[in-house]
Computed example of a mutant assay.
Amino acid sequence: MTPFEPYVPLCPSTSQTVPVRGLRYHVRRWGDPALACAERPPLVMLHGWMDVGASFQFVVDALAAPRHVVAPDWRGFGLTEAPGTDTYWFADYLADLDALLDQLAPGQPVDLLGHSMGGNVAMLYAGIRPERIRRLVNLEGFGMPGNTPDEAPSRYRRWLDELKVPQRLRSYDSPQAVAERLCRNNPLLRPDRAAWLAQHWARRDEASGQWVILGDPAHKRVNPVLYRKEEVLACWQRIGAPVLWVEGDRTDVARWWGDRYPRTEFEARLAVVPRVERHVLSPAGHMLHHDQPEALARRIEAFLDAPGD
Rank of each mutant, 00 (worst) to 15 (best):
A241I: 02
V243M: 11
V243N: 08
V243P: 08
L244A: 08
L244E: 06
L244M: 08
W245Y: 11
W245H: 02
W245M: 10
W245D: 06
V246L: 09
E247Q: 11
E247F: 03
E247Y: 10
G248I: 04
D249H: 02
D249K: 00
D249L: 06
D252A: 10
D252T: 11
D252G: 13
D252M: 07
V253Q: 14
V253F: 15
V253S: 14
V253K: 13
V253D: 14
R255F: 10
R255V: 12
R255E: 12
R255A: 15
W256E: 15
W256Y: 15
W257I: 03
W257H: 07
W257P: 01
W257D: 01
G258W: 00
G258Y: 02
D259Y: 07
D259L: 03
D259H: 06
R260T: 14
R260P: 11
Y261V: 03
Y261R: 07
Y261W: 00
Y261T: 02
P262K: 09
P262R: 03
P262F: 02
P262L: 03
P262Q: 02
R263N: 12
R263C: 12
T264V: 14
T264N: 12
T264M: 13
E265A: 12
E265Y: 02
F266T: 10
F266V: 10
F266C: 07
E267M: 06
E267F: 08
E267H: 05
E267S: 07
E267I: 08
E267V: 10
A268R: 11
R269Q: 14
R269L: 15
R269Y: 15
R269E: 14
L270H: 11
A271M: 04
A271V: 04
V272I: 03
V272L: 06
V273W: 05
V273M: 03
V273N: 04
V273Y: 04
V273D: 03
P274R: 04
P274M: 02
P274Y: 02
P274F: 05
R275S: 05
R275T: 03
R275A: 01
V276Y: 01
E277A: 05
E277N: 11
E277H: 12
E277V: 11
E277S: 11
E277D: 11
H279N: 04
H279F: 05
H279A: 07
H279D: 00
V280T: 04
V280I: 03
V280E: 00
S282R: 07
S282Y: 01
S282F: 05
S282W: 01
